[in-house]
Amino acid sequence: MAAARRKRLAVWKFASCDGCQLSLLDCEDELLALAEQVEIARFLEASRATISGPYDLSLVEGSITTARDAELIREVRRVSRALVTIGACATAGGIQALRNFKDVREFASIVYATPAYIATLATSTPIAAHVPVDFELRGCPINKRQLLEVITAFINGRRPDTPGHAVCIECKQRGTICVMVARGVPCLGPITHAGCGAICPSFARGCYGCYGPADALNIESLGQAWLRAGVPRGDVMRVLRSFNAGAEPFSKAALDYEDDQS
């Protein structure tokens, strides 16, 4: 056992806020144990020292928004035995996928003093649109407990336990009172992938959909319920177009709720 080579872990960043990588550094209590089991060979957020590949497990944060990204991700795939995307950007294109519904040149002309310096693609796309992905971990940001579960599962060759059911089940398991039923608060929980532990409803807020679409969902029916509760059509569209705007069930459904301002 002792002679077994530690598996090599690499962390990569594309278009993202770094929050998901930070979840790895957030594993303060478990980080030393993790470093004993895996060789953290490339993790620029933590250290400039890198060890060249190949890597047993690559964690990829961020979406593909430039031609250079599109090249680099192929290289990452080439040097990685397993490639796991972490977070909404890498899995669904992130908040920056809002450009997919508009003209990115118009955005650039408003945001940057010299838009000519900006070389960017017209779309923000998930990693799986470019290379085969072994597993996608949801969340904006990801949950550190789930991240450890996924890393542990991959280094031990087992299936990670990250259920794809709705957030509602997490609310019920922890005994949280349904904010839609008991308070009339619009909540995305019934269509949102579990994983966060149902944080917002435990503070009497509706779910924001940070973990993207659940495995099984009926956006049309929830949308109707929101409209009946007095939520304007455009607001239904806007909640579907947030961190997981590029996830197909959300992007398709959002079209049904477009209004004049969209």
């Binding site: 509602c168 089940i169 019920k172 019934p190 269509i191 099984a216 969902l217 029916s221 929830l222």
Partner: peptide, 8 residues
Amino acid sequence: TRCLACAN
């Protein structure tokens, strides 16, 4: 068409 399949 109405069921959310949310499991509540």
